[in-house]
Amino acid sequence: MPEIEVDVREPECAGREIRVDVCGKNCPIPLVETRKALREAKPGDVVVVIGTHEASKKEIPMAVQALGLKLLGVEEEGGVWTIRIQR
């Protein structure tokens, strides 16, 4: 499977920003919470997931790709990663 591409453009329409803090939570909680937020999000909303579990940083973009959603960015600083997804 090709590497997941990151879409760096700004959201096309201004939606809500839904923040999910899963710092300190291990698999599968970050993915469960991300799914929950994406279910609640409306088209255009941006879900921002902030966590520390290394495997989830890779798993969440994988799920985003399977769902056909836009991955706006994956950033990491000091062991804390931030993943931005547009529904």
Binding site: P28, L31, V32, R35, M62, L67
Partner: peptide, 8 residues
């Protein structure tokens, strides 16, 4: 994990 990814 497999269950979640299959669900999606």
């Amino acid at each position: 994990s497999l269950l979640l990814h299959l669900d999606m």
